Simulated scan of single mutants.
Amino acid sequence: MTSGISARVKLVVAVAGIAVLSGCTAQYRTHGYVPPEEELQQIVPGIDTRASVEDTIGVPTTASVRTEGGIYYVESQVRHFAWRRPEVIDRTVLAITFDETGVVDNVVTYGLEDGQVVPLVRRVTQSSDRDIGFIRKLFGNIGGLNASELLTN
């Protein structure tokens, strides 16, 4: 009877151990889309237009704010591991630029190693009102009144 219980306990411990270990394996996820090289070979600078590029390789991930700017396809590979914050391990950015007439000017691929970290700085214009007290704000304009201005209006 004890050998049957110990076999069940061993099985439960083994299953629990496998479940714990499988939770600690890294998971990789791909976000975004960059067309394969075979499709990129079909784009001819100087001939293709924005519309023909979208017909050939699909709708871009993002586009330039300017109409004559470029379109961008972005693909990132992210590693998720246990309790840690997800980490981007690979990123590919395909940039297709256009000239003023909307014809393809250049096709360039950038990798994660080509990127630069851009620090975002929050710039807030400081007003001088913070230095003025409430009473001064309240009575500040009293001395600026001119009786002749009041009577002419």
Rank of each mutant, 00 (worst) to 15 (best):
G111H: 04
E38P: 03
P45V: 13
T49Y: 10
P36Y: 00
V74G: 02
G140V: 06
V108K: 14
R50Y: 13
F134S: 08
L112C: 00
E54C: 05
T49D: 13
T61H: 07
T92W: 00
L120C: 00
Q42R: 15
Y110Q: 13
V107T: 14
P86K: 10
I71L: 15
R130W: 08
R66F: 14
V121R: 09
E54T: 15
Y72I: 04
R136L: 03
P45G: 11
R130C: 00
R85Y: 05
I71G: 12
G133C: 04
R84N: 11
Y72R: 14
D55H: 06
T56D: 01
Q77P: 00
E100I: 02
L120W: 05
V78I: 15
T101M: 06
V65H: 12
V53F: 04
T56G: 02
F81I: 02
V74P: 01
R91W: 00
V44E: 14
E68S: 15
E39W: 07
S52A: 09
I43K: 08
D129K: 04
V103Q: 12
G58A: 05
V104P: 10
V59D: 09
L145E: 12
F81V: 01
V78Q: 07
P45Y: 12
I47D: 12
T125A: 09
S64W: 10
L112G: 09
G140E: 04
I57N: 08
P36E: 13
A95K: 14
I43W: 06
I43A: 07
S76A: 14
I132H: 01
F134G: 01
D105G: 06
R136I: 02
T61G: 15
